[in-house]
Design a protein around this nucleic acid. Structure first.
Ligand code: MN
Ligand code: MN
Ligand code: MN
Ligand code: MN
Lengths: 226, 226
DNA sequence: ACAAATTTTTAGATTTGCCTAAATTTTAAT
DNA sequence: ATTAAAATTTAGGCAAATCTAAAAATTTGT
């Protein structure tokens, strides 16, 4: 049924990468894209894809890109569930900041124990989102993307709550910390400068000017959603 | 200074094994002993020992056995600290039983993050002993063996508290559970049958007969220690 | 003391995951 | 429709960690 349990760390990392690339863009995932994201060589990717294909984790035809099978998808969701639960644990229980958790979670996500991850889930009171606002799949791989919009794309006078970041690099997260921007903040878009796309926003009372780049990496949940 | 951080999982497991073998017996550790404990072949052990010797983690002369250097010892203690802290975490925070923790801790002990392990230590309120009664080294590798005796070796009428197990296999631990023997229990040795070494003990009120094998795998801390 | 048994090491092979360089296929441009 | 460029795969090799079989060193038994 599932040989999920005898996957190597490397195999798991490939599956995870293919999952992430597959969900932004409707095409099959390109060898080069995987290589770039994983900081490895295209020829190595081809080797691994063949192995994953043997194991029925990906659909693969030479030169035609790759996509996850249903088994591969399930596997990816299980790894992502672990990654994000560990991130919550590190923030909630060990006082890590949101820019420190990813690196450690990259290691912890490969620990094999169903009991461990389900108990962790319970300890954390079954969180639905990780510290960056990303959804946490449940035990069966089910999860719902939250309705949200990029701050850069909502109309003037939109009001909402900051619920996620698109770029979750430590650099960006630390910038947000420095400027007092955090998940949960109330945000109202006051003005958009058409010349450079920068925004004037009101965030938890304060007034602040943010560049287009910043705005296009912040998600808000508006109040007017149905 | 410390390249502790670029050790492979396999190297770490060898160091840990050499540490454990080295501390029971005054001799240098034999290749065969390592191979047996790690369920690998002596030739593989020789290969790895050479590598560890290159890295100044062990002292090695061909055919003469192996011992940890000061750096190797420090490394071993750091891994054991992680292993035992994770075991405490699993029992205290995730409701694992003491026979379930070892396997998962074998994986978790290889996670690399100083901040992680020190925060975990704090979350657990700096425990001094793991669920099997074994001491947890502090951040600097310091730890004290607790004064304790094998139940099989104390004189009749000795009174003490059960503080540890020698064999911490799941089989033995589950046997103890089934018979209501746990760390913290008050124990008084009532009678020793010289024929087979079995003991009649009073444990938390109850009276019970235990074989020599059982008694020789239980540690007690007596009240009459200086 | 010295042959036999045991332990340990060497030699050579295998698997996994990665690499470089060269060949092949697909895609883009004229 | 060809050709040029880009993407992908193949071929061949390398390092880590393991194995088997054979050789070398040590230990044991008489
Ligand atoms: Mn992450
Ligand atoms: Mn995250
Ligand atoms: Mn253990
Ligand atoms: Mn233990």
């Amino acid at each position: 049924m599932h040989k999920l349990y005898l996957m190597t760390r490397s195999e798991e990392n490939y599956i995870k990468t293919i999952f992430h690339l597959g969900r932004q863009g409707t095409q099959d995932v390109a060898t080069n894209a995987i290589a770039e994201l994983m900081e490895t060589k295209p020829s190595s990717v081809t080797d691994m894809i063949k192995k994953l294909s043997e194991k029925d984790l990906v659909n693969y035809k030479r030169y035609q890109g790759v996509s996850l099978t249903s088994l591969g998808n399930k596997t990816a969701l299980s790894i992502i569930r672990k990654h994000r639960l560990w991130e919550v644990f590190l923030v909630e229980k060990l006082d890590f900041s949101w820019d420190e958790v990813h690196e450690v979670a990259e290691q912890l996500e490969h620990i094999k124990s169903d009991k461990l991850i389900d108990s962790l889930d319970r300890l954390l009171a079954f969180p639905k989102f990780d510290p960056h606002g990303d959804p946490i799949p449940d035990k069966n791989g089910g999860f719902k993307e939250r309705d949200r919009d990029l701050l850069s794309e909502v109309p003037i006078r939109t009001v909402g709550v900051c619920v996620g970041v698109k770029d979750s690099s430590a650099t960006f997260l630390k910038f947000l910390d420095k400027n007092g921007i955090a998940l949960g903040n109330q945000i109202k878009v006051m003005e958009r400068e058409e010349f450079d796309g920068s925004l004037n926003i009101e965030i938890d009372g304060r007034n602040m000017q943010i560049s287009h780049v910043i705005a296009s990496n912040l998600y808000i949940k508006t109040n007017d959603g149905i």
